[in-house]
Design a protein around this nucleic acid. Structure first.
Lengths: 336, 336
DNA sequence: CTCCGCCACTTTGACGATCAAGTAAAGTGG
DNA sequence: CCACTTTACTTGATCGTCAAAGTGGCGGAG
């Protein structure tokens, strides 16, 4: 910047003013001269220096707490990332992805915050609720603007949140099964709890209760790592029960697909012998055999909303509603 | 840092020495005192300042050039991101995601480089080859370590590269079809070219040539934006030909699935009336109906390799082979 | 007893920008 | 013609860290 200033015969501050669009007091002549110098020298402002001085990085953190890369590789998450990326690009922000290891809560996940590399964060958590709670609390302590993803907050926390109507979706899925005559309905998910899947589990139980069906713990399985193969072994265990289920609700589409495959491998017909439902409605749900009955969750829109919320906050804009719950949509297809 | 120093009764430089593990000259007593002060004050070094001073950001850029969020939302890309994220986390690096708009090549994509926010970049390009070429060239000009993804480089460029055996994969897929008696084989892809898909297209043509089959341009369609619906309309056009194809190779799995669906909608049986193949072997390929014959591309491993290559280079390690081509694997299933 | 070298620090001065305050010159009103 | 405002800049300090050079005290060699 000093070079540019010298080249244009002005002070560095004047160059800074131009770069930051403070043109209220600058002659066109000077502006043109500086622009020429910048062009000629191939100058671009150093964002690191700017960040240091101004204490703003124009970067938001996409923080994932999860085993291995499960969460990051989830076909739901990439929709969210796409939404976040699009909004961030339009608003002039960058996105820093950082993954933390689960286990005892510690600040590893929040490293980018502690190191002052981001202005705000999007939090994707997994694990038991009492462990998850630690992170937003710590973020509040660190006074960093935070959007908690996929978690329904009570509304009195300092954070913002974006989620989908997971409970409602699961409930209507279960209602659909119950209307179809099913009385023994199983719910399967992975060991590592994802908040949005917990909401689905809750919706499932509510539907059972509302229909006067008793809850059977042996029909609720939480095993494996969100992999189709894990669904297979859970299906085996369910079908080996003395009174096996006639319908299985998968915590997400992947488990549903794994379940359907295992059912077919065991000679069962879906949906006649065993109904199967998914959740998320990822791009391929309608192409599997039979087409998957699932709930459409607007991942891309969730990413957009979250990024918008966070960036609006960072830019000091008014935020009308800090807790967003996006609607879902039942997609009845062939599998249930 | 100054606060910590004062608290511990030493100079800031001494704290810096401890933080950077320069313990050669430090009494245990002092070390313990400083550690106590850091703990007590909740001190964490400011990475922005460190970056400014040391001209290193310990951040790598994941740069995507694409329309909307197609590339980012591709089920292949998220595998790659997962791999990159895992390696980066283990090596102490962060990942900055930045998307650039396609069109006339400009430095928008390389903004994080120009602004000195990253130490090196992973380049995911799309568009015509002559436009793509601009970016690695510009990156070289800017002297930033670069790994070009999904593109087969000649080997004399300053950049590194990671790709998969796309040509070989497509070739063996086409060979399989030809062995199966197919003589009219179509190839469909999106309008916006992705490098790895070009390699596949090339492999397809090589296989035809090797089998003595004449190439028919009306069987090679490039339309839409990598969406299943686009595949549908391409299938319509192909089947309306006077001499329609008996097999369709999709540029990726998504198009293949869209093609299968359209074929079925028109009352055709896959694979008997029309054979369909995909590419990538994303998680759901084996669950569609019929299970998709495709080529397995190791997305996660590609991400790992790319990140490793780049970070090894940044850390000054010896790199034995800067151009990596990972093997693919033919997955013959039911669709062809 | 002096000198040297080593140890365990301290001091100084960037890195590249921004913020806050200052100033010369030109313009305006009475 | 003077006082005051506006315009178009400039100056100096600072953000948090790290590299390089400096310093005081102590032990051992000569």
């Amino acid at each position: 910047m000093r070079d540019v200033a010298e080249h244009a015969g002005v002070s560095a501050q004047t160059v800074s003013n131009l770069v930051n669009n403070r043109l209220r007091q600058m002659s066109d002549e000077t502006r043109v001269r500086i622009e020429g110098a910048m062009e000629q020298l191939g100058y671009h402002p150093n964002l690191t220096a700017r960040s240091l001085r101004s204490a703003r990085t124009t970067t938001i953190g996409f923080l994932l707490l999860d085993e291995g890369a499960r969460y990051l590789a989830d076909p739901m998450t990439d929709q969210v990332i796409a939404g976040v990326g699009d909004i961030a690009r339009d608003r002039g922000y960058s996105v820093l992805i950082h993954a933390g290891r689960p286990g005892r809560p510690d600040s590893g996940l929040l490293k980018p915050v502690l190191e002052s590399r981001v202005d705000g964060v999007l939090l994707f958590l997994s694990g038991p609720p009492e462990q998850r709670a630690w992170y937003p609390a710590r973020a509040a302590e660190l006074n960093v603007p935070t959007v908690v993803m996929e978690e329904a907050l009570a509304g009195d926390e300092p954070q913002m949140s974006v989620t989908a109507e997971n409970g409602i979706g699961a409930r209507s899925l279960a209602d659909h099964l119950i209307r179809g005559g099913h009385r023994r309905i199983a719910f399967i998910a992975a060991r590592q709890p994802w908040p949005m899947v917990e909401q689905r589990h809750l919706g499932y139980r509510e539907a059972l209760a509302a229909a006067g069906l008793e809850r059977d713990p042996s029909l609720e399985l939480f095993e494996g790592i969100w992999d189709a193969a894990d669904a297979g072994s859970m299906v085996d265990r369910l079908l080996a029960l003395p009174d096996p289920p006639t319908a299985i609700m998968g915590g997400n589409d992947l488990l549903a697909i794994g379940a359907m495959r295992q059912a077919r491998a065991r000679g069962l017909h879906v949906p006649d012998d065993l109904a199967v439902t998914g959740f998320n409605d990822f791009a391929f749900a309608e192409f599997v055999d039979p087409p998957l009955t699932t709930v459409h969750v607007p991942g891309y829109e969730m990413g957009c909303s979250a990024a918008q919320l966070l960036i609006d906050h960072l830019d000091g804009r008014e935020i009308s509603e800090p807790h967003i719950t996006l609607p879902v949509e039942l997609r009845l297809r062939g599998s249930a």
